[in-house]
Write a protein that binds this DNA or RNA. Structure first.
Lengths: 340, 340
DNA sequence: GTTAGCACTCTTAAACATTGAGTGCTAAAT
DNA sequence: ATTTAGCACTCAATGTTTAAGAGTGCTAAC
């Protein structure tokens, strides 16, 4: 539907605009070496491209700027594989080469790399809790009334929940309780913990005494508590470097959505497998409609485990960002797969 | 050193400027009911106040604006106790009335209240880890090589550190290790954990075998790891509502310092007991020199436990903010003291 | 000591002219 | 039938001028 020449022109416009953030005129395009036509010809092509909706004018006599449709076409058809420099590759490699055994640190480091290398904001969604299973449960009493239950998952994740213990309970009882819980719940997926607790374990507990029943109610409440998946962000201020964000209103709306971790997490969670690009209005969240979000998933044993993403202006270095996310998500998958 | 009338004028200027963010002229001051002098007289007083450095002009023929010295005088001498409305008091009371047993939640809630009620950015420094003692230690092995040590403090804080176990170690050995650690380390202040580990426990461990020694080295490394005190912030975007921050550069510099949690934590940590006000240049951090920071400490058993703070423009509602911090820090102290 | 009066200063906003980049169209060139 | 040169036209950006208005500092009168 687009002629070769139109595609050529479009490519130059987008490439150039991504670099400069300035509208591109026919003269500037004609000067590019890969272009062998006069400005007048290019003007005609640009008029057509504009009619087709791929580029826009900022005012009647301005140069052209890519539209979202233009970016979409660019991302779908014009992306040339970008090669990260050796320097960049070695930075990544170095970050992963020392033996890291802590999930948090690996993720934080990755977020830092992403935001530092791109000057965009990086977002990483931790592993889905419900895909992990219980490794061990511990209960430690803090006082007569309060105790903390500590859950460790097979991925080494540690979570803790506080709960109240009925004052009729004896010291030794807690230990018995832990034993029962461990015997019955180890290996159970976290997501099924609650129902398992409700079914088998409840009965078992009732055989002891009323006190247990009460404890059980408290404990269940604590375990039910929805602990949202953790979201890691870095380079939130990078957005401020982008010329499209020297409007305080825009900054405000974007920052306010970044504060809503639940919504952000949800966007990443539902992004689907592999690399996904959401340009401007394609984003579900209104506040992100001046931005592009590129997501990539990392896996454990072939199953999707979490998501890494970069958030920047629609005028994003798509090619570079996609390569980088590709490299990093693979690296993350590899690392996690060697662990578990 | 200042006459009563000068003080009156200064008070009106600052009160007014805090409300409007606009320079105040002599005519506007004369109109205030508490003022019974003509604009010309006030102009003379203002000239004196300016000579003394309490107020400033934005340009030759503008109204006056408080200087930092002016704010300092205002805070030190002109502050009238501010009474929070019943509505506000009840919001705070309500937040604390339901039985909360989780430290994080109380703090997060407090941060939310502070930022919501003031439209400034709230910052809360969690309790100093080194003031707490070890309640219990648990070690759970994740795989042949990796294990996680879980530390619970007397305040119910849960921390975990990952470490590597030497592959010569037996399954039962881990349990023995935990027993030794618990027998020797429970009740020890977290800050002394490392030296205690080095002294007594090391000897005890060496009696067993070389494997233990290796484990010990790994474990020690894990425990040494400096885990910074947690910093809670809320209302980071509130700053954007202030007219003094519609300059992207200022936003950027302030946000970049807010990202440096270590430095922020340090500022709060060294703020001293009770309410402290840092105005503009009085702040250590360069990036905060357009802001005021008001801190208050909360205590446990009379000892300083942590800090709550509000960060806003130098044109801050000092009176209200100080009252609010007072109320909230007391409430926090009360809550924690009932727990422990 | 206080105040009215007034010249003066400086900001702000609007009105206007100038410049330059870039377009669309037409007609000539290929 | 394309492609291109030429040219009138548009509009943002910039600078200049002007007028209005807010506020000051000073002087002289109260």
């Amino acid at each position: 539907m687009l002629t070769d020449r139109q595609i050529q022109v479009l490519q130059v416009i987008i490439d150039e605009f991504i670099q400069t953030a300035q509208p591109i005129g026919s003269r500037a395009i004609a000067k590019k070496e890969q272009i062998s036509f006069s400005p007048a010809t290019i003007r005609n092509e640009m008029a057509d491209l504009e009619d087709l909706g791929f580029i826009e004018k900022t005012h009647t006599s301005s140069g052209r700027v890519p539209s979202e449709k233009g970016y979409r076409f660019y991302v779908d058809h014009l992306l040339s594989p970008f090669h990260l420099s050796n320097k960049e590759m070695s930075v990544i490699a170095k970050a992963f080469e020392k033996e890291l055994i802590e999930f948090e640190k690996v993720v934080q480091k990755s977020a830092r790399i992403l935001s530092d290398m791109t000057n965009y904001t990086s977002i990483i969604l931790g592993p889905e809790v419900f895909k992990t299973t219980l490794k061990q449960i511990q209960i430690i009493s803090l006082s007569d009334q309060a105790a903390v239950a500590i859950l460790v998952t097979n991925t080494g994740h540690v979570e803790h929940r506080y709960f109240t213990i009925p004052n009729t309970m004896q010291t030794g009882d807690l230990e018995k309780l832990v034993n029962i819980l461990n015997r019955r719940l180890v290996g159970v997926p976290i997501i099924h913990l609650q129902e398992k607790l409700y079914g088998e374990v409840a009965q078992l507990l009732q055989q002891y005494s009323n006190d247990f029943e009460k404890t059980y109610a408290y404990l269940k409440a604590a375990l039910m508590e929805h602990k949202p998946v953790k979201l890691y962000m870095d380079g939130k201020t990078n957005i401020l470097l982008q010329p499209e964000f020297n409007d305080v209103e825009k900054i405000q709306s974007l920052y306010s959505v970044m504060e809503k971790e639940d919504e952000m997490a949800n966007v990443l969670r539902t992004s689907g497998k592999g690399i996904k690009v959401s340009i401007g209005q394609e984003n579900e969240l209104d506040e992100m409609q001046d931005c592009s979000l590129i997501t990539a998933t990392y896996t454990l044993g072939g199953e999707q485990m979490g998501t890494i993403a970069l958030l920047g202006p629609t005028r994003m270095e798509y090619s570079r960002v996609i390569s980088l996310l590709n490299v990093l998500s693979k690296q993350l998958s590899r690392t996690f797969n060697t662990w578990y």
